[in-house]
Design a binder for these strands. Structure first.
Lengths: 218, 218
DNA sequence: CATATATTCAATTAATTACTTGAATACAAT
DNA sequence: ATTGTATTCAAGTAATTAATTGAATATATG
């Protein structure tokens, strides 16, 4: 009887594991972490069909990781709580530390572009308050609009070149994106350095900043 | 190119999710969290065949959650790091907060036996140092032997009755087990209260105590 | 009321996973 | 060298999951 209870409990916990067991769902969660999104928007940004996106979202909702509400024709999905950010970060951290293939991918695609230590959130807050840095948000405009680090400028990567003349060449630039492995932040930093500017990345992404209770602008 | 990288990265993270997507593997992880175990021991305590146990362990090892070493004929498995304890606790916490069925199971099987707030670790350490409590470890003897809270007495549930006469009836008793949902701790507390004794549970289990860097006896 | 839009559902197909069984491998004891 | 013990591997079977397609449902607009 009590072994049946324990097994039933583990089966429920396994639902969370199942929700995280496919790359598409992890990607959808990263998108939703930037702010609530509709099914159509999620399908577009992920490159999945609407039906497939919807099915993955049902899976995530039934596992308790997201919730939804309807506004007119559209259904909007949001994370169930900050604990889902923590869950994603914990899975990511464990994979980084213990799966050699992750190390290899990160070294091949990310570290080659920026092998400096990223800037801790609290440090960025301090420097931003002192007016010592320019903060660059390289996410798509709609994610920026949903919420961003106060004072951050939204410059998608392809517009960075044209934006350079607006920058104070003496000031340090800190770029951030959706999370710690978002290549856009790495690319931005590499491009800025190519131009002789001083640039670094924030240690993770906007969801972690927000979860830390730091100020948010929208 | 960078979308392929991101997808490859998410696929690797998904390996961690897959490792956690079956009740049997979660249970094996909870057993291993108590201390390193051999395949044969894990098969016995989980009720799975040795071959099936071994297959699940390969899965866990390839996902980076456990490591193994061989001593003579036997292969011993241990967790890859304390971050795996954190991962399990995070999955458990998310499931508890966001899956209604978990709430139902916990209420039906656990809260009915003990609905008092469990005791925080630091509080137990303090009271134990002052000699104010009796600490009861209700795990099987081999898990106790592998490591336990200093001063804890190992009394498996079926021996509790016979052990009662050894107790200082005036002193509070704190019981702990493998984790926060281990029914043995709940049963022990219920049985002790039935006898008029003052009993509580520790807030989680031995792995969390150890991860917190608190003193460990073996 | 009819049509358009957005989303979900259900059925089908293909791929993946879990368990079982028997064989293979590695190490220890005789 | 042979036998025993412990574990892993491989193949087969059954169950589950992911994507696709078309239908169904809900809401908004004309």
């Amino acid at each position: 009887m009590s072994t049946n209870f324990k097994h039933a409990l583990f089966s429920q916990f396994a639902r969370v594991g199942k929700a995280l067991s496919h790359a598409n769902r992890l990607e959808l969660l990263e998108f939703i972490a930037q702010g609530e999104r509709s099914v159509d928007e999620l399908a577009t940004v992920s490159g999945l069909t609407v039906a497939n996106t919807s099915q993955h979202l049902q899976h995530l909702r039934q596992a308790g990781l997201v919730t939804s509400h309807k506004e007119g024709l559209k259904v909007y999905y949001q994370l169930s709580g900050d604990d889902v950010i923590t869950l994603l970060d914990t899975v990511r951290g464990v994979a980084e530390r213990h799966i050699a293939e992750v190390d290899k991918l990160v070294n091949t695609y990310l570290t080659v572009k920026d092998n400096l230590e990223p800037l801790p959130r609290k440090e960025l807050l301090k420097r931003a308050k002192q007016g010592l840095v320019t903060v660059l948000d390289v996410r798509p405009a709609e994610e920026y609009a949903a919420g961003h680090v106060p004072g951050a400028v939204n410059v998608p990567l392809k517009e960075l070149e044209g934006y350079l003349k607006n920058l104070d060449a003496q000031q340090e630039i800190v770029a951030y994106c959706r999370g710690p492995h978002c290549i856009l932040a790495f690319d931005a930093v590499a491009a800025l350095r190519d131009k002789g500017l001083t640039a670094r990345r924030l240690e993770d992404g906007f969801p972690e900043w927000k979860r830390a209770g730091l100020p948010v602008e929208s």
